[in-house]
């Protein structure tokens, strides 16, 4: 008889408790973020896709050197005119003719932004970058067009100040 009461108690509790949980959650605010229409609240220092403010870039190649996956390709040419200074007061002595970041290879480690002396390379909270072709994930930040680049290189006699990343590889 005692066992009967035990079983009665546990069975009743086992039936009623889930019902109670369901009832409570019925009136609770849903946790789902309606993603395409509302964005998730990211943390202040979220590390997502890279962005380079090329106007403040001095082409020091430090980001490309520290990059563990070698996804930053930079080419610089010595400037033949005064390019001004960056926001941080560094003098811009080089044309940054190519500044490409392959987002497909980037592993979001934040090393490149830490070494950046002018704080122009930053990690943005932008995480949306899905593409149909993987080569669309190569972000080009240099403002110099291919024609201008050819002109700059011709003036410099084909001599570059620094080449890194995939550009330094032999095909």
């Amino acid at each position: 008889m005692k066992h009967w009461w035990y079983r009665f108690y546990y069975t009743t509790r086992g039936v009623l408790w889930p019902l109670w949980v369901g009832l409570v959650n019925l009136f609770r605010r849903p946790v789902t973020i309606q993603y395409p229409h509302e964005k998730p609240r990211l943390f202040p220092r979220s590390r997502m896709m890279l962005y380079n403010d090329i106007d403040n870039c001095i082409g020091c190649l430090q980001c490309a050197r520290v990059c563990p996956v070698d996804c930053i390709a930079i080419e610089t040419v010595k400037a033949d005119r005064d390019l001004g200074v960056t926001n941080t007061g560094h003098k811009k002595k080089l044309y940054v003719t190519v500044f490409d970041i392959d987002e497909a290879k980037c592993c979001y480690c934040n090393l490149c932004t830490e070494v950046c002396p002018t704080e122009c390379l930053v990690m943005t909270p932008n995480f949306e970058g899905s593409v149909y072709d993987r080569y669309h994930l190569v972000l080009r930040f240099a403002k110099i067009t291919p024609e201008e680049r050819a002109e700059i290189l011709r003036k410099a006699g084909g001599k570059t100040a620094g080449v890194t990343g995939i550009l330094a590889r032999k095909v």
């Binding site: 973020i33 979001y108 949306e128 970058g129 899905s130």
Partner: peptide, 12 residues
């Protein structure tokens, strides 16, 4: 479709 990220966020 290629989704970039290491790893991508769930929203990505």
């Amino acid at each position: 479709v290629y989704v970039p990220g290491c790893p991508p966020r769930p929203e990505a």
